[in-house]
Design a protein around this nucleic acid. Sequence first.
DNA 1: TGAACATATGAATATATGTTCATATATACA
DNA 2: TGTATATATGAACATATATTCATATGTTCA
Lengths: 121, 121
Amino acid sequence: MTNQINADSCNCNIIHEDVVNRVKQVMPQEEKLYDLAELFKVFGDTTRIKILYALFENEMCVCDIAVLLGMNQSAISHQLRVLKQAGLVKFRKDGKVVYYSLDDEHVKNIFDQGFVHITHK
Amino acid sequence: MTNQINADSCNCNIIHEDVVNRVKQVMPQEEKLYDLAELFKVFGDTTRIKILYALFENEMCVCDIAVLLGMNQSAISHQLRVLKQAGLVKFRKDGKVVYYSLDDEHVKNIFDQGFVHITHK
DNA sequence: TGAACATATGAATATATGTTCATATATACA
DNA sequence: TGTATATATGAACATATATTCATATGTTCA
């Protein structure tokens, strides 16, 4: 009766087959979209955003960041690990102290673009 | 003995007071950082990323998106609500069918910036 | 070597979030 | 008016995630 294409898992029918097919062709590959979502997930937390903003200005050690944000040293350390794994920050050691800094200068661009959206609302 | 400034909540001491103070001054206000994190949180999900990419190409109805992504209609509807609340999509109704489309053309810019980071790793 | 300190890490906990299911709402049409 | 269909929505559930606590690791310095 109605045109059912791959409505296996979803409980509804295709309405505009042409549009769906065209969109399907221009969609970036699954893996890239996954990676993109993972990156934004890292940005989707106030603590990590604050850390990155701090590092825009200066390299900082873990203790200083903890004091700056009024948070537990352990919490900061955990989040720095997330940022490091995402390739967003790097570190250098100097004795006991570990200094973190930005590892990708155009993270600022992404944030600026984000602000454009926010301030337009 | 050591300089303790506002290490109330955190269990460590300030090491570089000057840096902390300078960074504190240039940090955007709390609320803006929160909003920014909220925006990126919306981008931090594969389903929503896919929906937005689809809408870059064409307006689409809920059913078509569900078929395209091979997902439950309800799941799509829930996510569209999130995107709508974030001011990222808008909709028009035509009979039973609800068509969603982009409400902010430079979302694409943000994604492009994100890709720059990803492909650099 | 031992005390003090900066950082990292694992476990535990509380909270947030995405999807599904069932169902409600709204529109079209016979 | 009744049936089919498109969408929305609330509850339930499973999973992910952020923070804290306790503790381990590694470095400095007396």
